[in-house]
Amino acid sequence: MAEPTTAGPAPQPEPLARSPIPTLTPTAIVAGWEVTDRSSDASTRLADLSPLAKVHVRASEDGALAAALDVRFLKAARDDYGVLITGSGPGEWTLIGPAGTAGDIAGRLSALDVDERITIVDLTHGRALVRLTGDAGSTLLATVCAVDLDEHTMPDGTCLRTSVARVVTDLVRDDRDGVRSYLLHCERSSGAYLAEQLRQVGEAHGLGVEGFAAAGR
């Protein structure tokens, strides 16, 4: 039997975080995450943004937190810090911010002076996240998603959760400089599958893969 060990940890190398979606070369390190580092001039592009901070918060559907966040279910809006607040469920929000800022986001949420119990869970590591930008995005999604993504049913600044290629996926319409763009995130272990399906479906639409930095965030 081994000696009882009480010594602290030995010095460790800086840990490297990996996305569930395989990176493509060349790669770079962003906030401790290994990311794809390339650009694409395709008119429709897919990027792995899994390193982005994703903070999940639960509270009552129409309580103090809901009022403080001022984002209703099925809506998405950016706050003063540039964090995208998505109304991802009834009494449930997913906040998406720059890589490495989950602690800050959670801290700000905790600091909100709301008169109800809220639950904050950092799901940065629990969700795979991609961005699909470009004209063919909705056409492409029509092969994997049954929901009507027409302008009148899902304009910019809205979100919903549905089945995408048979994976439960949060879909956020978050246009970039007037170009139609979607964020899609699902639980992490299905991320590689989901990204691969989008890539395959995108082949017919000339889908390009761009890196983390090139996708804007």
């Binding site: 279910f73 099925l74 469920g89 009834p90 049954a146 929901v147 919903l160 959760r161 549905t162 089945s163």
Partner: peptide, 11 residues
């Protein structure tokens, strides 16, 4: 009542 009309396969 939350999400609007969806295919039964989501339920």
């Amino acid at each position: 009542p939350w999400c609007g009309p969806r295919n039964v396969t989501e339920f």
